[in-house]
Design a protein around this nucleic acid. Structure first.
Lengths: 340, 340
DNA sequence: CTGAAAGCGCTTACAG
DNA sequence: CTGAAAGCGCTTACAG
């Protein structure tokens, strides 16, 4: 076992000072060609690499980004991480990932843990519980300490910081508009409870689309789901009692569940019922029928979030001007909507 | 903006030494009740938190685990991370995630980056390219420097370290055995190229199961896929020319693709063709028909890997005795196999 | 051209 | 009971 070698050890072996070794390795012109070469050769031989932790302490920069997301076993969040990773790596940053499990307390604990010097800035998406409580002290505090935060997807207006989102309302509007333009009469909505920010926005988009076409949104056509585990009965009821000819679902899981339930009831998709989901994930692609959906490019979102954070980290002066970037979406037509 | 406060600042404010502050906060009995209280009150007021980086440098422990995986946009790996996270957090560790993107070079770079003091140990699964090249120097080196490594899923015998895997061969054997016992005659295999370790083992399991029942594995019944993008034609050919009544696929994607192709050819699953996949992921659960599969509990795998790593990190003396743990698997019967 | 000193933020053995 | 010193591994302004 050969432990990692330090400047100190090299200095001792070569009988020079630590400063000399350090400068030699950084190619300082202060040092004579001769010793520089000697030191570099030795360092190479022993495979010297500077200790990241020491550098972090010295520079007061860790070159690592903290990511806090509700869940990782969720295709969308996984793609976002992937996007962040890529841009981070290109810029010499690493990422440290913490999961809140949709819990406010875990979100707080994780943020505090990382905020104590482990990272340079955060990229995060709020947990459901945080959105419900509307308590953002932990985030405000971190920002107040001068640590930049970029929020994505599940964001809040109550915190001033950079954000990257899609236009959830518009995207939902377009999905419903598609149904209306194609002569669907009874358009149902399967959405989340209102405190989930993106769910609420998509619900608003649905309602607005109907309004703009002189239809009123009928509460009976709207199912709001709190807990994915127990969504079946509510959706079934909607299908049975209202007999919609189209359903807009605010995520993949709701969409695929709707299709499965429809199948069980003897309804064919898309012949008897058309379905549009949200988030172009693995389920939409591979289920049968494949599901038409609003694309939500997680890779791009993550990439933009990382760029925004890194820009802010490497900015000369502080800048109180925060941006909110929109990632464009579009409707991906697949088998769950008819080809017209 | 109130920057994070340090011991030094507290010491100055309170007109005591840094040592006194440090000891007070750690409740050292060396310090008088009086000053201890004073210091603690002040620290609380200013929300003092020790700097992780400074602690890491001092203790030569970062309390963070490095994870290197081929991809994160892959349900199985996401569940493993989730499992690691949980156990890590319970033990006061954070995780830093790097993706190799199936590339040898990225795997090497990421490992070197993290090995320079950023983490205490690795949990990793080999990239395809690494498995193809069979070059494990980067891993050997890290281990030689005294940094423990735990490999999971895609492992190699050529590196001595702790490992956590499933019995891929046995699991595949059981899937094929299920087919044989239920009187399927023409059992096809959709697998990866041989250099992917888990693919090869599953292929072996398939072959052994047939042999043990006095059947010979017919090469024409086996499709080995290099690149998921171009697998369709090969699978189609198998279905058309060999007319199998059952297919064992070594992952979800192969399984769902097989089913979709079969559907396109007018074959019904499970009536005309039974399919068993591998990895109990989101696709198997939500596709129509839902897919029978060998479960592969990623949460548990990740959890065990984290436990093994943490145990080794917190062990008193070095221990050259490495363990390989098996996570049990079982066949999850769903709609893609007939209920008998 | 080389090296001693100070410092990043902390801990702890030791002196007073 | 308190504090100065040394040290984790590094960098850099400064002295010689």
């Amino acid at each position: 076992m050969k432990r990692k070698v330090t400047l100190k050890q090299i200095a001792k072996e070569l009988d020079v000072s630590i400063s000399t070794v350090s400068k030699s390795l950084r190619n300082s012109p202060e040092i004579s060609e001769d010793t520089r070469q000697k030191v570099q050769a030795f360092a190479k031989l022993y495979n010297y690499r500077p200790n990241n932790i020491a550098l972090s302490l010295k520079n007061k920069k860790t070159k690592t980004i903290g990511i806090i997301i509700p869940e990782i076993v969720h295709h969308f969040f996984a793609t976002v991480i992937s996007g962040i990773e890529q841009v981070a790596n290109e810029n010499g940053y690493n990422v440290i990932v913490c999961l809140s499990d949709e819990s406010f307390d875990k979100e707080v604990i994780n943020m505090e843990m990382l905020a104590n010097g482990s990272i340079d800035g955060f990229i995060m998406s709020l947990s459901k519980e945080t959105q419900l409580k509307k308590d953002f002290h932990h985030i405000e505090e971190v920002i107040n300490q001068g640590m930049p935060v970029v929020m994505f997807d599940r964001v809040t207006n109550e915190v001033l910081c950079d954000k990257v989102i899609i236009d959830d309302q518009l995207a939902a509007y377009e999905a419903v508009d598609f149904f209306i333009k194609n002569n669907f009469k009874k358009i149902g909505l399967v959405t989340t409870v209102d405190y989930v920010s993106v769910g609420k926005l998509r619900t608003d988009g649905y309602i607005n689309a109907l309004k703009d076409h002189d239809r009123t949104a009928d509460d009976a056509m709207i199912v709001k789901i709190e807990d994915i585990e127990n969504c079946a009965s509510k959706i079934e009821k909607l299908l049975q009692e209202q007999k919609p000819d189209a359903i807009f679902a605010v995520n993949e899981l709701f969409a695929v569940t709707t299709i499965k339930l429809a199948n069980k009831m003897g309804l064919k998709v898309p012949e008897d019922l058309s379905v549009i989901g949200f988030t172009d994930g693995i389920i939409s692609q591979f289920s049968t029928p494949s599901i038409s959906t609003i694309s939500q490019n997680g890779i791009k979102m993550g990439g933009r979030a990382a760029q925004m954070l890194i820009e802010r980290l490497e900015m000369e002066e502080e800048n109180e001007l925060y941006r909110t970037e929109l990632i464009e979406t579009h409707l991906v037509e697949r088998e769950s909507t008819p080809t017209l």
